Amino acid sequence: MRVLVALLTLATAVPVVGISTTADAQVLTGRGSPRASSRPRAQPPRLSPAEQQQLWDAQDTVADLNGQIEAIQEQGAAAGGLSAAQRAQIASHTTRRNEAQATVDRLVAKRGA
């Protein structure tokens, strides 16, 4: 009986030694490779000089038309209401502004910023 107890004590006191398997070796070899997050990202396509100029022109147009719309609205408010001609001007400016803003949005999305 003492021999059996001694063998059990010895068996539990010995550390378990594991043998690496092929799957462990495959996992361990990937440790030195760069992570997906550390790889450089692809840069968004740059705008051509003509597209960049188009973007600036469209941004200027949007700002100018916004200023004109505000001025017409202020004139209408001072006069007690917008006239039919002023409403038509605002509608025309709004249409042109929306077209220019669509160009700005498209080029900004292409640029990626």
Rank of each mutant, 00 (worst) to 15 (best):
T103Y: 00
Q52Y: 13
N98G: 03
A13E: 08
P40Y: 12
A63H: 08
A25Y: 01
N66Y: 05
R87W: 06
N98Y: 11
R87K: 15
Q43G: 12
A50H: 12
Q73S: 10
A36S: 10
A13T: 14
A50E: 14
A88H: 05
Q73N: 15
V3F: 14
R2D: 13
L28N: 05
T95E: 07
M1H: 11
A88W: 00
S38N: 08
A50Q: 15
G30H: 03
W56F: 14
V108C: 00
R96E: 12
R87C: 06
A71M: 09
T61A: 08
A88E: 14
R31Q: 15
T94H: 12
V5F: 13
A23M: 08
T95K: 06
V104L: 06
P15G: 01
S33C: 00
G30T: 04
R96L: 13
A13N: 09
A113G: 10
A88S: 11
G80R: 07
S38C: 07
I19S: 09
V27N: 04
P40S: 12
Q86P: 03
A25S: 04
R46K: 11
R106D: 02
D57F: 06
T61M: 06
T95F: 03
P15M: 02
R111L: 07
D64A: 13
H93F: 09
A71I: 05
S37C: 10
S33P: 01
R96P: 04
K110C: 03
V14G: 03
G80T: 08
A113P: 00
A91K: 13
